[in-house]
Amino acid sequence: MNLVECHGLSKTYGSIRALDNAELALESGRIIGLAGPNGSGKTTLIKILNGLICPDSGSAAIDGHEPDKYTRSIVSYLPDRDYFADWMKIRDMMDIFSDFYADFDRAKAEELCKTLELNPDMRIKTLSKGTREKMQLMLVMSRKARLYVLDEPLAGVDPAAREFILRTILTNYNENGSVFISTHLISDVEQVLDEVVFLKEGRVVLHRNADDLREETGRSIDECFRDMFRYDAWKEN
C-alpha cells in the first residue's frame, strides 16, 4: 500500500476547477517535489491531504486512512502561512508540539534551534518573516513523521539561506517516511528530489524519477518545467 493515494480528486471553487480528477501515488522513503504554476491546484491538494478542505469528489488516503485524527498524528505539515498566536514564545510552540505529538523529539528541536539561530525565549510577534519560517521548519522537522508536507518551505527565505534550509530538511527527515515539497523554486530544490510531480490545471500531468527525467530529456527539472508550462503562457497571450 502506498503512503499516499489520491484517486479522481476534484474540487471546484465557484467557476474555478482547482483539482480535476487528480491521480497520485506516493511511496515511503522518497523526497517528492510538487511543481505547477499558480492556480494549478498545489495548495488545494495539500490542504485536502491535511484535512483542511473536503474534496467535492474522489478520495485521498494517507497510510490507507482518509484524512482524520490518525493521519494528523503521522503527517507533519508546514503551511505557507503563520498559524500561531502572536503572544507566544518559541518555547511555547515547542511545548505545544511536545504536548500533542508523540513523535516530537524535543532534544532535536532544541538542537535545531541552535543550528538555525533561534532563541526559544523570543516572542513570535517580534520575529522577522524569515525567522518565523525557520521556526516553523524547526518544529515540523523535529517530528519523526511518516509524511512531511512542506508548502513552499523556501518562499520567505533569502536566497543565501535556501541551501541551508534544504540541508536542514535533508539531514533531519525521518528516512522511513517521505517528504512532499510543494514549490515554485524548482531550481533551488531539484537536487534533493527523488521524484517530481507536475500539476497543471488541477491534473497530474507528470510523475517521474528526477534523474530519469533528466536522462530522457537531457535537461534539468527546472528546464523541463519551463518547457511544459511556457507554451501555456504564450497561449494565453
Binding site: N50, Y70, D82, Y83, A85, F100
Partner: peptide, 17 residues
C-alpha cells in the same frame, strides 16, 4: 480567529477530533 482563521491551520492539523 482561533479556528476559522490562520490559527486554524494549527488547530485542525492537531491529532484531535
Amino acid at each position: 480567529h482561533g479556528l476559522l482563521s490562520n490559527e486554524g491551520y494549527l488547530m485542525f492539523t492537531l491529532p484531535v477530533s
